[in-house]
Design a binder for these strands. Structure first.
Lengths: 134, 134
DNA sequence: GTCATTGCAAACGCTTTGCATCTGT
DNA sequence: ACAGATGCAAAGCGTTTGCAATGAC
């Protein structure tokens, strides 16, 4: 339960660095594949463990896709939400004072305390809908 | 792609009936266990298939828990969101015209089309926070 | 030298599928 | 009778874990 000591290793940094570059959510498997491509052989289990650590430390956001994968993304500080392109995965961080207060209000109206919320907005981004209007 | 013919069987009805009674989200495994308890032996695979059918037909909502389970709940008609108790799982359906329009606005501001959103509010319901304030 | 971390493979848990049998229509 | 539905067990899939070897401090 207590904070655990955390050592900095080349694998850890590699994962972290890759997340820095990425501009959209990546699955653990994505990260693993990309690391191999660039020659940084890191075990899949290690990728998972690194990601867990990053999430625990609050350095990275996790989301679950509808098909059960966890996807990770380095997050700028502060509370915000994501606007994700359903086609290409491009992600835009958006703030929503509106939603924040709505969530709080709805919660307390029903007697709920410690109210938190999860909000994700999905759509098709401009480039994608231009490319394939279907 | 085309709509498939759907037969009414005892297993299907059992799953559907159980969802009618339930007042919170249930996982496929929950449903399966409860059916066994009351003697209605239904195969786990059948429960999954029944649920898939219900979801396809739009009679049931699916959600993914953080630990990767799909949870299902019969839904009253119309678009709405859920306020879920983190302790006991009690669920309240809430409407949010506010969020709806916010999501649309945010989406189109960024050039996104076909905008949809996922919103879940979590908290601790009154009974639960009275029972164990921690 | 210690103790966290790594890598591999085996184990896990939820979900899906192949297939032979059954059953609603 | 035909086509969908069922049940079982096996396969799939992403993720986690045991364990011995490795490397950070």
């Amino acid at each position: 339960m207590t904070a655990v000591q955390r050592r900095s290793t080349k694998q850890r940094s590699a994962v972290s660095a890759l997340l820095d570059e990425a501009d959209s959510f990546l699955s653990a498997q994505d990260l693993h594949a990309r690391l191999r491509e660039r020659g940084e052989a890191v075990g899949l289990a290690t990728v998972y463990r690194a990601l867990q650590a990053l999430v625990e430390d609050g350095d990275v956001d996790v989301l679950r896709t509808d098909d059960g994968e966890s996807i990770y993304r380095r997050c700028s500080t502060g509370h915000h939400h994501h606007l994700v392109c359903r086609r290409c995965g491009r992600t835009v961080e958006v703030e929503g004072p509106t939603v924040e207060s709505w969530a709080l209000r709805v919660g307390s109206e029903h007697g709920f305390t410690a109210v938190e919320h999860v909000v994700e907005v999905f759509g098709v981004c401009a480039p994608c809908s231009a490319a394939e209007p279907a």
